[in-house]
Design a protein around this nucleic acid. Structure first.
Lengths: 366, 366
DNA sequence: TTGAAAGCGGTACCAA
DNA sequence: TTGGTACCGCTTTCAA
């Protein structure tokens, strides 16, 4: 132990290793570079010396010269919605396997993440994943100018200003839910929106309304839950206090659906689904808990994450095709929170799905 | 736009700004350093040039010389347990306010994180937070040797090999739960352990057993849930199938308690708490959801996180006192999943707590 | 295959 | 207050 006072680290450097191994510092560098030209003897000597000294290459120094930090910035907000921790975990694991790591930025749920991103950019991240945050086009441009690829996760942006996006099938899913509820005989439908200006909430609402209109049904009642449980609870109270209380509620996220269901049962004494059907979106973990048993449209986390990672890594490797809007298909998972239509429920791999005859639905993606 | 092909970024450097502002590169550096001596005129010129060019200081380059990356590594596993996302969010927010950021490492729940940490160390993190992972003493030594302070979160280590730890009051909480259940008239108690070799599960079990013994009660039945819902469900099934089925179950985490409650109600037709009382530990978010309404010992996330951050930052600033084991006090939050004792329930700030007379309980900590 | 040397983009010390 | 200059620890030519 090279006794050192204080906590200022004086790390073992490649020079130290070189000296000990009796080679040049370049040789040390080469020994740690996969395809470099070093003799087996040199490499062995270097590795031995490195082991004895406890040498670990300094990634910071390396990235200064390679101009690649192997760090991906990720902005998330509101991890209370269980969908996001799952995404985070999958994203981190997948990236880690590719030698990248996530630098985390917690953003306010609503407001935009611009000040944050300034920060992120300083860290020289190789790429950026934005989940549950909005990116201004100004910032998008800044990223583009710096050659930092950006992928929006679970949201899109109108003018795809050079950024890729990965979402679930928001419109398609919402349409399917509308059809499902109609087929189940519901007539007084309601929609609980998330954050008003989020693309995700908008798309889900649009799909829902379009399908209702196409089927000749009345437009849904509408309240705003802001993707937040407290707000969703209040919205639910307003809904269930109406004279023409809905017989089915579609919530723009499972997180809100749980709050709505809790209010329905424990706040208004309604039976689910006998008195009111509740459907969510995401298939977040708690949706499957028996106490909720939520019928919901699944956004396949693994598939979405791998799409996002593929897109990002592709850009990192020079792919400069026009921005992509990747939509990952999902399924309507049928559980106990909504009355069932007379037909269309199939069991696949032990999971009950609703697949109306018209949809050939070629199954989950990879 | 300095038209550049490909995605290789050629960032604007301090030199570019210097040239444009007609000053030296040092002047640019100073203009971006808070306490440095620059004339207002120079700084203004530099800032203007920087603005026009879209200059952002390169933190990587800076940390190479300052030997501080302002990056804190954080290892977490199993974000399905809602306690951890809450911790992550709080930790990130707090650190961010201090100008630090979290580099995330996802670790396997059980196995140790050593290979991971090798990786982390290469990134020259300033410090390390380990939640839901174990650190070998070998690695702890490596961190110490590199001057990287480590704080264990929600776990401790036997020989506190130079690392601080922050935990909730595991033994005290478990003791209080034992007293609470006994006072509530329960006689056939059971304990659902987490991962066997985790300090947290061990401490909770020890506190529980000690209190039962001290009260002259029989030792609890015991099953292992491994902090995992599936495993906890199986454990619950074993428990509820017994002839002498428990009338109260203390689970080492809320996450497992939820699984156990689901099995009790939906798998075995038991009423909670009429047939069986269930108590958890953590006060994770879903514990408060009406469908569970879980009585549980609260680990105050904010207080724990701020303790951890304070400890870490203290070390970063040179504090070299002997390793600390910080225990953050908590409260037994009374909800609906366990039968109540005849006395001791108080309502504080709208939250019902159990505070037996003997405990002066000077309230929550900051 | 090897070592010397020139940076990567900054910070910090020095003398002016 | 300023600019010049020596690094920080590594990668990457370039000759040898």
């Amino acid at each position: 132990m090279t006794s050192r006072s204080g906590s200022r680290r004086r790390a073992v450097t490649a020079h130290d290793v070189a000296r000990r191994a009796g080679v040049s510092q370049s040789a040390v560098s080469r020994s740690f570079t996969p395809g470099a030209s070093v003799s087996e003897a040199t490499r062995a000597a270097v590795l031995a010396a490195a082991g004895e000294l406890g040498y670990r290459p300094n990634l910071i120094a390396r990235s200064l010269i390679t101009r690649r930090s192997r760090i991906i910035g990720m902005a998330v907000g509101y991890l209370h919605n269980q969908f996001y921790p799952a995404v985070l975990e999958a994203m981190s694991a997948r990236l880690q396997a590719l030698g990248y790591h996530l630098l985390l930025f917690t953003a306010p749920l609503s407001g935009d993440a611009d000040p944050l991103l300034e920060d992120i950019l300083r860290y020289q991240v190789d790429g950026l994943v934005l989940a549950s945050t909005t990116l201004s086009s100004r910032l998008a441009a800044a990223c583009a100018a710096n050659g930092v690829p950006v992928v929006l996760f679970n949201r899109t942006i109108r003018d795809a200003s050079g950024v890729d996006s990965v979402t679930g099938d928001n419109r398609g899913g919402a349409k399917r839910i509308a059809a499902f509820l109609l087929a189940g005989g519901h007539r007084r439908l309601a929609f609980v929106a998330g954050i008003e200006d989020s693309s995700t909430s908008r798309d889900r609402e649009r799909g829902f309304r379009d399908a209702l209109r196409a089927a000749g049904a009345a437009p849904p009642m509408r309240v705003v839950g802001g993707y937040d449980m407290a707000q969703a609870s209040q919205a639910a109270d307003a809904l269930f206090a109406r004279d023409d209380r809905p017989d089915a509620v579609f919530c723009a996220s499972d997180h809100m659906a749980i709050a709505v269901m809790d209010r329905a049962r424990f706040g208004h004494g309604l039976r689910v689904p006998a008195d009111v059907s509740i459907v969510g979106f995401d298939d977040a973990v708690p949706a499957a808990w028996p106490a909720y048993s939520l019928t919901t449209f699944a956004q396949p986390v693994e598939a979405m994450v791998s799409s996002a990672v593929d897109a990002l890594v592709g850009r990192l490797e020079g792919d400069d095709a026009p921005p992509r809007r990747i939509v990952v298909r999902g399924e309507l998972v049928v559980r106990g929170s909504a009355r069932l239509p007379p037909a269309g429920v199939e069991t696949v791999d032990g999971i009950r799905l609703w697949r109306p005859e018209t949809s050939p639905a070629r199954g989950r993606h990879r």
